[in-house]
């Protein structure tokens, strides 16, 4: 995959629309031959605690429609990005420390904690998206 496009996605928000768009770019990007890295930090991370079904609040009317209609949940899309597209999802080590989370407490498709030095190195030369 050395000739693949690199797409790095920083996910910070706890809002439904932001999480949904990040998950869509991650999943479609990953299944289209891109090398996708997702970096989970700040208020987004707690949703990825194992088995978490915390409700992500909508920012506006479209977020409410996402709830009401049959849109794939953002966690399902992130999981498919990994299972179908070989994306890599890593939690930010700072957010892990602040929340007191260990690797084993996160969903199976989320990898080891990653620090900023490693993330910046991995993201270098590719597209970077932030939500």
């Amino acid at each position: 995959m050395s000739d693949a496009n690199k797409i790095s996605i920083i996910v910070l928000s706890d809002k439904r629309e932001q999480l949904q768009m990040a998950a869509m770019i991650a999943s479609v990007g990953a299944v289209s031959g891109n090398e996708v890295l997702v970096f989970l930090s700040m208020n987004a991370l707690r949703y990825f605690a194992r088995g978490s079904d915390i409700h992500a609040p909508a920012e506006g009317p479209v977020g409410e429609l996402i709830d009401a209609k049959n849109v794939p949940p953002f966690k399902t899309l992130f999981e498919q990005a990994v299972s179908l597209g070989d994306a890599k999802i890593h939690p930010c080590s700072m957010a892990m420390d602040l929340l007191g989370l260990e690797h084993g407490q996160l969903e199976d498709y989320v990898g080891e904690a990653m620090g900023l030095t490693m993330f910046l190195d991995a993201a270098q030369g590719g597209q970077v998206w932030s939500f």
């Binding site: 999943s27 299944v31 049959n70 849109v71 794939p72 179908l84």
Partner: peptide, 14 residues
Amino acid sequence: RGSFCSGPLMELIA
């Protein structure tokens, strides 16, 4: 049917 973007694409890929 009944699923919204990007559900149908992901179902196809699976």
